[in-house]
Amino acid sequence: MGSEHPDRREDHEAAVRLPRQGLWVAEPAARPRMPDPVRTAAVRAVLIVAVTLTLATITFFLALTGSWLALPMVLISVAGTIVGTWGVLDVWITRQMWKQRYGVVSVPSSTARGRRGAPEPAYGSAYAPQPAPPHPGHPGHGPGHGPGPGSQPGGLRRA
C-alpha cells in the first residue's frame, strides 16, 4: 500500500513547492483613472441621462395611448432634458477645472512653456524696474512745471 509510483510523488511535491498563480491578475490600465470629482460628476450625469431617457420613453408610450398623463410627462421630460444637459456640462466644466488646477506639469516638455523661436529678453533688461510714465493731469507735470522739452539738449526751444 505504500508503493506509489515515484513520478507521481515528484509531481505532487513540485506542485506543493511552486507558488500558485491567482485567478485574478491585475493588469495596468490603458488610461489613467479619472480624478474623483470628475468621476463623481460623470456618474451623476449618467444617472440623470438614464432617468431622462426612461421618462421620455414612458412619455412617448403615454402619448401613443392618448392618456391624460402625457402632458405632465412631457413637462417632466423637458425639465429632465434641461437637468441632463446641466449634468453633462458639469462633467465638462469639472474636467476643465481639474486640468487647470492640477494638470499643468512644470517641465520643459509641458505646454506651459513659451513659443519656439521667441527671443528671450536679456536678464538685466527683463527684470530692471521701469519708471512709470508721467500722467498729464497730475500736478507738477505740464507747461511751466519742472524740466520740460525746452531744457533738454536737442529739444524744442522758444524763439
Rank of each mutant, 00 (worst) to 15 (best):
M1F: 08
S3L: 10
H5Q: 07
P6A: 04
D7R: 05
R9F: 05
R9P: 00
R9V: 15
D11N: 10
E13W: 03
A14E: 12
V16F: 09
V16M: 11
R17M: 08
R17N: 09
R17P: 00
L18K: 13
L18M: 10
P19G: 04
R20N: 04
Q21K: 07
G22I: 00
L23Y: 00
L23I: 01
W24Q: 11
W24D: 09
V25W: 04
P28H: 06
P28D: 13
A29Y: 01
A30T: 11
P32Y: 02
M34L: 13
P35W: 03
P37H: 01
V38Q: 02
V38A: 02
V38F: 00
R39M: 07
R39A: 13
A41I: 08
A41T: 02
A42K: 00
V43T: 10
A45D: 02
V46M: 06
I48L: 13
V49A: 05
A50Y: 03
A50R: 15
A50F: 06
A50E: 13
V51A: 13
L53T: 07
L55Q: 12
L55I: 08
A56V: 01
I58L: 12
I58T: 07
T59S: 06
F61D: 05
L62W: 00
A63T: 11
L64F: 03
T65W: 12
T65G: 12
G66F: 07
S67F: 10
S67C: 09
W68Y: 11
L75P: 00
S77R: 08
S77N: 14
V78G: 13
V78S: 13
V78H: 04
A79T: 15
G80D: 11
G80P: 11
T85G: 15
T85L: 15
T85I: 14
T85P: 00
W86V: 14
W86E: 05
W86Q: 11
G87N: 05
G87A: 15
V88I: 15
R95C: 02
M97F: 08
M97C: 06
W98P: 00
G103W: 07
V104Y: 08
V104A: 14
V105Q: 14
S106P: 02
S109D: 12
S110Y: 04
T111P: 05
T111G: 13
A112N: 10
A112G: 14
R113S: 12
R115F: 05
R116K: 08
G117Q: 05
G117F: 09
A118H: 08
P119H: 05
P119R: 09
E120V: 15
E120I: 10
E120T: 12
A122F: 03
A122H: 08
A122W: 02
A122P: 01
Y123C: 01
S125H: 08
A126E: 14
A126I: 01
Y127W: 14
Y127N: 15
P129A: 10
Q130I: 13
P133S: 07
P133H: 07
P134Q: 01
P134S: 04
H135I: 03
P136D: 01
P136H: 03
H138Q: 15
G140D: 04
G140A: 01
H141L: 03
G142Y: 04
P143F: 03
P149I: 14
G150F: 06
S151C: 07
G154V: 01
G155H: 05
G155A: 03
R158G: 11
R158V: 08
